[in-house]
Amino acid sequence: MAKVIGAITTSHVPAIGAAIARELREDPYWKPFFAGYPPAQRWLAARRPDVAVIFYNDHGLNFFLDKMPTFAIGAAPEYRNADEGWGIPTVPPVAGDQRLSWHLIERLVDEEFDVTTCQELLIDHACTMPLALLWPGRDAWPVRIVPICINTVQHPLPSAARCFKLGQAVGRAIRGYDEDLRVVVLGSGGLSHQLDGERAGFINRAFDLEFMQTLPGDPRWATRHSIPELVEHAGTQGIELLMWIAARAALEGEVRTVHSHYHIPISNTAAGLMVMETFSP
């Protein structure tokens, strides 16, 4: 049977892609950010997942306002990155796992999550950046992926409580899969930031730190807030923390933090990273 080996949650910022392409890891601005990643990379190298299920939010690469699914799940043999219009270099295609995708789709719909299924799906920086950060310097990605996109573009967004339940259902579905796969669940987004309006540049260190501190042991802490309340605390784009909530919810039992890192700022964003796994004494 398949196994969820853990969850990794990380920020994604377009500028990170440009920094990787220009080899700025040692640059004084970037170093404190990239310095957070080697422990996560080592954890992955030791745990060797076969598949990454990735919760992310599309920023207007694949989905436009003509059709905006609340939850969309990839079911493609391969996923391609493409021009997002703001000059980030594209990364190589990533292999999918169609059989696992359809298993997740069947189980999720069974559990009353009416997901949109995508046999073609362009993946944007939110989906590719965790791969580039966690498996750097690769010509080919060492994992297959199943992308799950949660709408954060157009309100109403699904509530934090709903995203938590989605993550739980994804975790149950993976654990019920009949292949001996090792699966890591990734959550890509956040933490606090706001790009738009007179409040642009808003960052909330205290909220982020409390969110990160509660996520492993009390993951429902953030789900007590409505979406507008979370936007107030974390910013209009900080609401991407929904991806962290979903990824954490895929873990069962007692969860411990293997590694965490927090750095302000990258571009306009408070950048966070967490590696979590189910506690086994």
């Binding site: 309100h155 706001q194 107030e232 209009t236």
Partner: peptide
């Protein structure tokens, strides 16, 4: 109401869409 409740912030909702 939700658009007005956070200063300097416009939630992109159906009206805006």
């Amino acid at each position: 109401r939700s658009r007005q409740s956070i200063p300097g912030t416009t939630l992109f909702d159906g009206t805006q869409a």
